[in-house]
């Protein structure tokens, strides 16, 4: 475990906690894309199938449970909670995320580290995670005004994968045979998707103005 990866995990954990905090305290999910949250729940469910078969470390197991639990509870809140679901603007959150799932599944069947169920599911979860933020970014473009917590949530989510890229570079140079092209390319694509959001986020933060994304 190197510092980059630990920072990445903490940033990721913090992004999910920020979101849960927002939904739980103000009982609102305005500006949050349910589609992105559902995609993340699928990402974790398919990524952590080895939860009970491969024991890596207590940290690893606990973090997997926290990610699974938080992503499923966010989906539950947005779908079932009587107050929260009212603040979900479903006519704005229209990205057809099903169109993301099938191509990722086909790609995982074609490109994977080993053609076994676990490995294909693992590759699928990486491809899906790379594009899972798209419905959220589209929703932000549409609703234009971004409240602080949503902006922080997306920013932290982008930062987590950026730390992971530093982690992969570090491990490449310090560990023999550490090569995971599937992870690296998916992670890079994922971070690039945040590119323009980061630009506008820093821009608004520097000029201390409200974050506005261009139409």
């Amino acid at each position: 475990m190197n510092m980059f990866r630990f920072l990445g995990d903490m940033t990721h954990l913090f992004s999910v906690l920020v979101l849960l905090l927002k939904i739980h305290t103000i009982k609102s999910c305005a500006g949050i894309s349910l589609k992105t949250q559902e995609l993340y729940a699928i990402v974790f469910a398919t990524r952590y199938l080895d939860l009970f078969t491969d024991y890596i470390s207590l940290y690893n197991t606990v973090m997997k449970l926290v990610y699974l639990g938080s992503s499923l509870s966010i989906v539950w809140y947005m779908r079932r909670h009587k107050l929260v679901r009212r603040s979900y603007d479903k006519d704005q959150d229209t990205f057809r995320h099903h169109f993301l799932i099938l191509p990722c599944l086909i790609l995982a069947l074609l490109i994977n580290e080993k053609f076994t169920f676990m490995e294909v599911m693992w590759a699928f979860s990486l491809y899906l995670e790379a594009v899972a933020i798209l419905p959220q970014l589209v929703l932000l473009q549409r609703t234009r005004n971004i409240d602080n917590l949503t902006g922080q949530y997306v920013f932290l989510l982008g930062a987590y994968r950026s730390f992971y890229i530093l982690n992969w570079i570090y491990r490449y140079f310090t560990e023999v045979h550490y090569v995971h092209w599937i992870t690296w390319i998916s992670g890079l694509v994922q971070t690039l998707l945040y590119g323009d959001f980061f630009y506008y986020y820093f821009h608004s933060w520097k000029n201390n103005e409200k974050l506005q994304l261009p139409a």
């Binding site: 890596i56 973090m63 990610y67 490995e119 693992w122 045979h177």
Partner: peptide, 10 residues
């Protein structure tokens, strides 16, 4: 090798 496929990252 086996550790190649063991996924130790989250």
């Amino acid at each position: 090798t086996d550790d190649q496929t063991t996924k130790d990252e989250l």
